[in-house]
Protein backbone atom coordinates (compact mmCIF):
# COMPACT_ATOMS: atom_id res chain seq x y z
CA UNK A 1 0.00 0.00 0.00
CA UNK A 2 1.40 3.40 -0.99
CA UNK A 3 0.12 6.67 0.46
CA UNK A 4 1.01 9.84 -1.39
CA UNK A 5 0.18 13.53 -1.53
CA UNK A 6 0.88 16.30 -3.98
CA UNK A 7 1.91 19.89 -3.53
CA UNK A 8 -1.07 22.28 -3.32
CA UNK A 9 -3.44 19.33 -2.79
CA UNK A 10 -4.50 18.60 0.79
CA UNK A 11 -5.95 15.17 0.00
CA UNK A 12 -3.99 12.04 0.73
CA UNK A 13 -4.24 9.40 -1.97
CA UNK A 14 -3.69 5.67 -1.50
CA UNK A 15 -2.77 3.02 -4.05
CA UNK A 16 -3.34 -0.54 -2.96
CA UNK A 17 -3.43 -3.76 -4.89
CA UNK A 18 -6.49 -5.98 -4.70
CA UNK A 19 -6.74 -8.69 -7.33
CA UNK A 20 -10.55 -8.76 -7.20
CA UNK A 21 -10.74 -5.00 -7.72
CA UNK A 22 -8.34 -5.37 -10.67
CA UNK A 23 -10.63 -8.05 -12.16
CA UNK A 24 -13.70 -5.85 -11.65
CA UNK A 25 -11.90 -2.90 -13.24
CA UNK A 26 -10.97 -5.06 -16.25
CA UNK A 27 -14.62 -6.00 -16.71
CA UNK A 28 -15.75 -2.38 -16.21
CA UNK A 29 -13.23 -0.81 -18.57
CA UNK A 30 -12.98 -3.65 -21.09
CA UNK A 31 -9.18 -3.61 -20.81
CA UNK A 32 -6.66 -6.34 -19.95
CA UNK A 33 -4.90 -4.58 -17.07
CA UNK A 34 -2.70 -7.41 -15.78
CA UNK A 35 -0.67 -7.67 -19.03
CA UNK A 36 -0.40 -3.87 -18.91
CA UNK A 37 1.08 -4.09 -15.39
CA UNK A 38 3.43 -6.89 -16.42
CA UNK A 39 4.92 -4.94 -19.31
CA UNK A 40 5.56 -1.78 -17.30
CA UNK A 41 6.60 0.85 -18.37
CA UNK A 42 5.42 0.06 -21.90
CA UNK A 43 1.70 0.71 -21.76
CA UNK A 44 -0.76 3.01 -23.49
CA UNK A 45 -2.34 6.04 -21.83
CA UNK A 46 -5.62 4.11 -21.66
CA UNK A 47 -3.95 1.22 -19.86
CA UNK A 48 -2.01 3.52 -17.50
CA UNK A 49 -5.24 5.25 -16.49
CA UNK A 50 -6.93 1.87 -16.04
CA UNK A 51 -4.12 0.51 -13.86
CA UNK A 52 -4.05 3.62 -11.64
CA UNK A 53 -7.86 3.53 -11.45
CA UNK A 54 -7.80 -0.13 -10.33
CA UNK A 55 -5.12 0.55 -7.71
CA UNK A 56 -6.87 3.63 -6.32
CA UNK A 57 -10.35 2.05 -6.39
CA UNK A 58 -9.35 -0.31 -3.56
CA UNK A 59 -9.34 2.49 -0.96
CA UNK A 60 -11.10 5.33 -2.83
CA UNK A 61 -14.20 3.30 -3.72
CA UNK A 62 -16.06 6.24 -5.24
CA UNK A 63 -13.23 7.42 -7.49
CA UNK A 64 -14.11 7.65 -11.19
CA UNK A 65 -12.02 7.01 -14.28
CA UNK A 66 -12.38 10.68 -15.24
CA UNK A 67 -11.03 11.78 -11.84
CA UNK A 68 -8.03 9.46 -12.24
CA UNK A 69 -7.50 10.87 -15.73
CA UNK A 70 -7.57 14.39 -14.27
CA UNK A 71 -5.07 13.41 -11.58
CA UNK A 72 -2.78 11.91 -14.21
CA UNK A 73 -3.04 15.07 -16.30
CA UNK A 74 -1.86 17.13 -13.33
CA UNK A 75 0.69 14.75 -11.82
CA UNK A 76 1.71 12.30 -14.55
CA UNK A 77 5.41 12.09 -13.66
CA UNK A 78 4.77 11.76 -9.94
CA UNK A 79 2.03 9.17 -10.43
CA UNK A 80 4.25 7.06 -12.67
CA UNK A 81 6.94 7.25 -10.01
CA UNK A 82 4.53 6.07 -7.32
CA UNK A 83 3.34 3.24 -9.55
CA UNK A 84 6.90 2.24 -10.42
CA UNK A 85 7.77 2.05 -6.71
CA UNK A 86 4.73 -0.14 -6.10
CA UNK A 87 5.78 -2.48 -8.94
CA UNK A 88 9.43 -2.54 -7.85
CA UNK A 89 8.31 -3.46 -4.35
CA UNK A 90 6.18 -6.30 -5.74
CA UNK A 91 9.08 -7.57 -7.82
CA UNK A 92 7.19 -7.04 -11.09
CA UNK A 93 9.52 -4.38 -12.46
CA UNK A 94 13.26 -3.92 -12.16
CA UNK A 95 14.79 -0.68 -13.32
CA UNK A 96 17.45 -1.40 -15.91
CA UNK A 97 20.07 0.71 -14.22
CA UNK A 98 20.63 2.36 -10.87
CA UNK A 99 19.71 6.00 -10.89
CA UNK A 100 22.52 8.19 -9.65
CA UNK A 101 20.66 10.74 -7.60
CA UNK A 102 23.69 12.98 -7.27
CA UNK A 103 23.74 13.60 -11.02
CA UNK A 104 20.99 16.02 -12.04
CA UNK A 105 18.91 14.47 -14.84
CA UNK A 106 17.10 17.76 -15.44
CA UNK A 107 18.38 21.33 -15.61
CA UNK A 108 18.97 22.79 -12.16
CA UNK A 109 16.36 25.50 -12.71
CA UNK A 110 13.62 23.06 -13.73
CA UNK A 111 10.99 22.71 -11.04
CA UNK A 112 9.22 19.40 -10.55
CA UNK A 113 6.11 19.10 -8.40
CA UNK A 114 6.99 18.08 -4.92
CA UNK A 115 5.24 15.03 -3.70
CA UNK A 116 5.43 12.94 -0.60
CA UNK A 117 5.36 9.20 -0.97
CA UNK A 118 4.97 6.86 1.90
CA UNK A 119 4.97 3.12 1.37
CA UNK A 120 3.09 1.14 3.97
CA UNK A 121 3.66 -2.59 3.99
CA UNK A 122 0.27 -4.22 4.29
Amino acid sequence: MTKFTFENDPQQYVMDFDFNVLCDAEAELGLDLLPAIMRWPMQSALELRGVVYALMKTKHTSVTVAEVGGLLTRELTAMRKVLALELIEAGIYEPREEIDESAPAVPADASLPQQQIETVSS
Binding site: D18, N20, L34, M38, I92
Partner: peptide
Protein backbone atom coordinates in the same frame (compact mmCIF):
# COMPACT_ATOMS: atom_id res chain seq x y z
CA UNK B 1 -13.20 -17.50 -6.99
CA UNK B 2 -13.24 -14.19 -5.05
CA UNK B 3 -11.51 -15.81 -2.07
CA UNK B 4 -8.76 -16.97 -4.41
CA UNK B 5 -8.50 -13.42 -5.78
CA UNK B 6 -8.37 -11.95 -2.28
CA UNK B 7 -5.33 -14.09 -1.45
CA UNK B 8 -3.36 -12.92 -4.50
CA UNK B 9 -0.91 -10.08 -3.99
CA UNK B 10 0.76 -8.37 -6.93
CA UNK B 11 3.81 -10.58 -6.48
CA UNK B 12 1.54 -13.61 -5.97
CA UNK B 13 -0.30 -12.82 -9.21
CA UNK B 14 2.99 -12.85 -11.08
CA UNK B 15 3.94 -16.20 -9.50
CA UNK B 16 0.46 -17.58 -10.24
CA UNK B 17 0.80 -16.55 -13.87
Amino acid sequence: ERQVGAKLSLRGASRAH
